[in-house]
Design a protein around this nucleic acid. Structure first.
Length: 448
RNA sequence: GACCCUAUCGUCUAGCGGUUAGGACACCGCCCUUUCACGGCGGGUGCACGGGUUCGAGUCCCGUUAGGGUCGCCA
């Protein structure tokens, strides 16, 4: 039987990082098995479901690189879709639910009470054969023991999650349900529903949850809980995808960096860990840095330029090759692309306050003289190439019997207003003679 | 309250009865160096606790503790 899996989020205007991982694991499993990955929107709660909220999910998944073989093509619930098992929005499937509820009622598995329809839950414990967790036999809780039956259609006529989720999985031919472990305790209800509907339940795989760094559960409001944090925080989707795969799953070969296809090739449900994992922002940043430094230069420049513009730097006045060369000096220095404005901003503005850095005690007395000497010497060279600039500094240092750094630091500060940054000689070359000389003048003027 | 899941360095993990308990991030030294980095070399840190089973337990069983989840006319 061909594998069919789905990711079935509720559009809340928010895509949780854990949800993103669930989607990814489903996708990975489908790819590995040559199966079908389906996106289904569980928008039964009409009040809070909007097209915009669906869009957050659609855009988030696309950004991550998780595409679906079947499901909506747009965020509109009545819009076009791909696949034969639609509609893929629950809000469009009311008829199906209605007839299935009738079926349950006529078979004696469901009944009305207080205007709501309730499912007659079996009294004996049900065992879930979970691919990740193993066999789980669930006894009734004390509350359930008093009344094991549960509502499947509210008194306002709206079917509830447990019901629609099962009906859709059944109708859509889902073979494996891969979802968060928070659903493990609900699974006996789902199995009972499948059986009442005369169907064999799918295989289940409950994956561990993602916790905060301190071990508490990662709720909606916690730092980094939303995928948007990463989309807007200068993370590369492949780094985020790689990182979240490493939470609860291991390639077991001591490697850390993988492409999605590589992971798909190795991915097995049975090797998913059973315990929750804490989210380590620092390691994600490291991984992101690894992907940034090895990424395509053009893509880096494109993404970097967008972030510079967003930060308020006007790049439209600079030639393309200048922008590209400037940003590239920082390619191996940032862990998140959003660090770029602070690091490369000096390339794109003359509005630099040089005084604080020039007057700081990092630069000892005699700065002014050295700056003046730098200026007069740099003025005279024809080619403003990095190696020429370096040899000027080298000569200056040896003539004055001092270390390179007593010239290096003042020059850097004069050019960038900062004590650290990209490779000095390259930055000076890219800035160009006139800019550098002008900044040297300003730096000299700023000396105490 | 009841039920379910889980437990290896600070974090993510390898381990699936016999290992000097391995790797990565982070951290600490040293080297390199034009800053910050990169890179190189070196270092510390771990099997939650208590009982069993076994010649032998991080590995199997039970309990305790801790963390997480579920028990809704939310999804």
């Amino acid at each position: 039987m061909k594998v069919r899996v789905r990711f079935a989020p509720s559009p809340t205007g928010f895509l949780h990082i854990g949800g993103a991982r669930t989607a990814l694991f489903n996708w990975l499993f489908a790819k590995h098995a040559g199966g079908t990955f389906i996106l289904r929107i569980e928008d039964t709660d009409a009040a809070r479901n909007t097209e915009a909220a669906v869009n957050v999910i659609v855009e988030g998944l696309r950004w991550l690189g998780v595409d679906w073989d079947e499901g909506p093509s747009t965020s509109r619930s009545d819009g076009p879709s791909v696949g034969e098992a639609g509609p893929y929005f629950q809000s469009q499937r009311s008829e199906i639910y209605r007839s299935r509820v009738e079926e349950l009622k006529s078979k004696g598995f469901a009944y009305d009470r207080d205007g709501a329809v309730r499912f007659r839950m079996p009294r004996d414990p049900i065992t879930v054969h979970d691919l990740v967790v193993g066999d789980v036999r669930r006894e009734l809780t004390d509350r359930e023991a008093q009344d094991p039956d549960f509502v499947i259609v509210r008194s306002d006529g709206q079917p509830v999650f447990h019901l629609v989720n099962v009906i859709d999985d059944l109708e859509m031919g889902i073979t494996h349900v891969i979802r968060g472990e928070d659903h493990l305790s609900n699974t006996p209800k789902h199995i009972a529903l499948f059986e009442a509907l005369g169907a064999t339940p799918p295989a289940y795989a409950h994956i561990p949850l993602i916790l905060n760094q301190d071990g508490s559960k990662m709720g909606k409001r916690d730092q980094g809980a939303s995928l948007i944090t990463y989309m807007e925080g200068g993370f590369l989707p492949e780094a985020v995808a790689n990182y979240i795969c490493l939470l609860g799953w291991s390639p077991k070969d001591n490697r850390e960096i993988f492409s999605l296809p590589e992971i798909a090739a190795k991915f097995e449900l049975t090797q998913i860990l059973r315990h929750n994992a804490r989210f380590d922002f620092t390691k994600l940043r490291w991984l992101n840095w690894e992907f940034i430094r090895s990424m395509d230069q053009q893509r880096f420049v494109k993404l970097g330029a967008e972030i510079m513009q967003k930060a308020g730097f006007d790049l439209t006045k600079s030639p393309e090759n200048y922008i590209s060369a400037a940003l590239l000096t920082c390619k191996e220095k940032v862990q998140q692309l959003v660090e770029l404005p602070a690091l490369a901003g000096f390339f794109f503005t003359e509005d630099l306050d040089l005084a604080p850095a020039i007057q700081s005690n990092d630069l000892t007395s005699g700065v002014k003289e050295r700056l003046m000497s730098l200026k007069s010497n740099l003025e005279t060279i024809d080619s403003f190439a990095a190696d020429h600039i370096q040899s000027v500094l080298k000569r200056l240092a040896s003539e004055s019997g001092s270390k390179m750094s007593v010239f290096v630091h003042p020059l850097r500060v004069a050019c960038t207003g900062a004590a650290s940054g990209p490779s000095l000689y390259h930055l000076v070359e890219i800035l160009g003679k006139s800019r550098v000389l002008r900044r040297l003048d300003r730096a000299i003027a700023a000396c105490p």
